[in-house]
């Protein structure tokens, strides 16, 4: 499914300074029973967000109205564990378009790029600066500039560059996806398949 183009995103951010946020926390398995990809945002971080009786847990950041925005800032090793793309769908469906961390699990990073969420990997020191900036002012804005590959804390002007390969960057800025690309090279694939021993 092609998705929205991503170029420059300016937004406040939601801080979640927890390490090893795994995809079972992002969306627990019991909510994976749908056969469609929408509606998962309601159950994003379900067990951290709601009590067993479905009342919101007051101390969880998504229930704190002072924090909002399209950027989620997580601790080290974000998105580990299960390959469920539902985790990325839930983050997208909730309204985030960018996740910032000092380290991402591989499958989560791929899944995010494939559906139009930009994973921005920053240094541990810069991550710390972001957390401190949000702590000082929950409304503080970050600017994620994909063409320039930079992330900036607007209040202080502090900025850092991030990595993304040229191919994925081109896809994200244009809203293309891999399936479009692969469909255009079917002959080449068929020729390869003809030589396979399997």
């Amino acid at each position: 499914m092609a998705y929205d183009k991503f170029t420059v995103l300016k937004s406040s951010a939601v801080p979640m300074p927890i390490e090893n946020v795994d995809t079972d926390q992002i969306i627990p398995a019991r909510f994976l029973k749908a056969t469609e990809r929408t509606g998962f945002g309601d159950n994003l971080f379900r067990d951290w967000r709601y009590n067993p009786d479905n009342t919101p847990k007051k101390d969880f950041v998504l229930n704190n109205p002072i924090y909002s925005g399209k950027i989620l800032v997580g601790g080290k090793n974000f998105g580990s564990g299960s390959s469920r793309e539902h985790a990325a769908w839930a983050i997208y469906d909730y309204g985030f378009r960018c996740v910032v961390s000092s380290f991402f699990a591989d499958i989560f990073k791929n899944n995010s790029l494939n559906i139009g969420i930009l994973p921005v990997q920053v240094s541990p020191a810069f991550l710390d600066k972001i957390f401190r900036a949000i702590e000082a002012d929950p409304k503080t804005e970050l600017e994620v500039n994909l063409p320039d590959q930079t992330i900036t804390i607007l209040a202080t002007g502090e900025s850092e560059a991030f990595e993304i390969n040229t191919y994925k960057k081109h896809n994200m800025t244009n809203g293309y996806d891999d399936i479009d690309y692969l469909q255009a090279m079917k002959e080449e694939i068929r020729a390869y398949a003809g030589k396979s021993i399997y």
Partner: peptide, 10 residues
């Protein structure tokens, strides 16, 4: 290795 649903479609 494990893949996401977009990759399953691929």
């Amino acid at each position: 290795f494990g893949i996401g649903t977009s990759e399953v479609e691929m």
